[in-house]
Amino acid sequence: MKKFIVILMLAVLGYYLGTTFYSLGFGDARFEHGVKDYYLENTVSQLNVANTITSIIVSFRGFDTLGEVTVLFLAATALGGILYKKRHHIGDRSVLFPASSIVRSGSKLLFPAVILLGVYVFIHGHLSPGGGFQGGTIVATGFLLMLLAYQDFTVSHHILSFVESFAGIFFVAIGLLGFINGGTFLQNFMPVGTLNDLFSGGVIPIIYILVGFKVAAELTGLIYTVLNEKD
């Protein structure tokens, strides 16, 4: 009986969603003058940044990025608080038996390459597709590979929380510096260079590098907390 009512409600919802999105259309520019015209024009003339998504996330709508970084921090803290145990099993992990020799030697070879790829992605965030969030998760995946292959590979918890707090404080400090110099929070106060240079875009590469460090440290700490759960 319950399944029948659920299917009926979902059919009504699907019908209304379908008619709404079919009347919108797909692929034709339905809004003649929207916000995207302003962003697409000013990302080269005002900021000299080649990647439009980076300039939207960091500079035009930078306050939302600050909120997202806060939400990630709260999620990592909540997870550490919920899964709290008296830590007398520091050495045990949730893996059942040690990994084979192929996994062990392959991870030892791949670990520096993955870290280098992640750092490259978040340093060149304003020139090509990439940025802080993508590069940070790639670095965290590299650490996950080493954590799964070796039983005694540990990451010091103090260094992770130090890097994370430091990056967060510096993000807010750069925003306050923009407040003092220009007039609004998170405004660009450094000189913009030429297009496609590594040092173009003013304060944007600095903020994205800080976001990359913070996301990498947070996700590594989250994975480390979850992997050390053993009943």
Binding site: S94, Q134, I138, T141, L144, K230
Partner: peptide, 24 residues
């Protein structure tokens, strides 16, 4: 950009967190 983010987060990290939950 969205493809990079979905590839890194949706495939690797979500699967490992689900597998650790199933293990416990």
């Amino acid at each position: 950009d969205v493809a990079l983010t979905e590839a890194a987060i949706g495939v690797a990290l979500t699967t490992i967190i689900f597998i650790i939950t199933i293990r416990n």
